[in-house]
């Protein structure tokens, strides 16, 4: 199977879907002439023209709202947030219009829009350019929120997102744009609301999504080789809809769970994971569910401080030890 980078898997999905469906248009800052700040849209202006690859001024609320209006009349816009940090300026449009239009129009209007871009930290962009917003957008009914980590899922979920009749918040792991993975040449899609067991194990379940899944895989490898502990790693892939079944099935097998997230601890996705486990697998638990989260600070700049602000292998291993009642 050919290997593609995360970036190229995204571009492949956009390109194929634009070729297949004329109602797909792209909007965003510097996505056309410049080629995309992260080069996701490179070459698409030449191929599809300025009517379909629309360079916008730096006005996130305006162009996101305009894209929602386009979607209301049946186009399928894919909006690039140069980074999700800028989406606060568009959040009124996303939350007040895209998420609710179908409902308050009594089902008369749908908003088949995708808003995509890099989310999360890890590249020293400091406080205003580092956020993980899956819990924020995941909070709102009417939105679908996904956060894939492998190039395979990135492509398959982007196709699903563009074809979805409802608004999709597509959170990319910006720090991983250059990473590679196998991507089949033939067309395939990856459904929303289905988590992926990224590594099987029987002793403890480690749960996350996005970039942190790679951290969990490293931890699982260390636990296996250094301690003969077999950790199961679950990649949620989709935040809303949320796949409770895969989590519950795994915890029923391992009886122990650690939920990991890059975002701040309070009111995060890991809290939701812990709540679901206690609601649905309470009697199977041999230890309280542990959470590992980002530090309760705005993201710092210095390399060492940033590393200290996000979950580390050691923090996850320590949490796994606690739920296994093992000494460090």
């Amino acid at each position: 199977m050919p290997e593609l980078t995360y970036r190229n898997a995204l571009r492949a999905a956009l390109t194929e879907e634009m070729a297949r469906d004329e109602s797909v248009v792209l909007l965003g800052e510097d996505i056309g002439v410049y080629g995309g700040t992260h080069l996701i849209t490179q070459g698409l202006l030449d191929r599809f023209g300025a009517k379909r690859v629309i360079d916008t001024p730096i006005a996130e609320g305006g162009f996101t709202g305009a894209a929602i209006g386009m979607a209301m009349l049946g186009l399928r816009p894919v909006v690039e947030m140069m980074t999700w940090n800028f989406s606060f300026l568009a959040s009124d449009q996303i939350i007040q219009n895209a998420a609710k239009l179908r409902y308050f129009s009594g089902g008369q209007v749908g908003v088949p829009i995708v808003i995509r871009g890099p989310n999360g930290g890890g590249v020293q962009l400091s406080a205003q350019h580092t956020h993980s917003l899956e819990n924020l957008y995941g909070h709102f009914p009417g939105l679908k929120v996904v956060s894939p980590v492998t190039p395979y899922d990135v492509k398959g979920m982007m196709l699903t997102a563009i074809r979805d009749p409802d608004p999709v918040i597509f959170l990319e792991a910006g720090a991983l744009y250059g990473t590679k993975g196998e991507v089949p040449e033939e067309e395939y899609t990856v459904p929303f609301g289905k988590a992926r067991v990224a590594r099987e194990g029987k002793d403890v379940t480690l749960i996350s999504y996005g970039r942190q899944v790679n951290l969990l895989l490293r931890v699982a490898e260390r636990l296996a080789t250094e301690e003969d502990v077999q950790a199961e790693v679950i990649d949620l892939r989709s935040i809303r809809p949320f796949d409770e079944e895969t989590i519950v099935a795994s915890v029923k097998k391992t009886n122990r769970a650690v939920a990991v997230q890059e975002q701040w601890r309070f009111f995060g996705v890991a809290s939701e994971v812990a709540a679901v486990i206690q609601e649905r697998a309470f009697d199977y638990l041999d230890a309280p569910v542990e959470r590992v989260s980002g530090a309760e600070v705005p993201a710092p700049y210095a390399r060492n401080l940033e590393e200290a602000a996000f979950p580390s292998e050691q923090q996850v291993i320590d949490a796994a030890h606690r739920v296994l009642y093992r000494e460090g």
Partner: peptide
């Protein structure tokens, strides 16, 4: 709602 209207006109 103003951006929505402008987007509709484009569509």
């Amino acid at each position: 709602h103003i951006p929505l209207g402008v987007g509709m006109a484009y569509a």
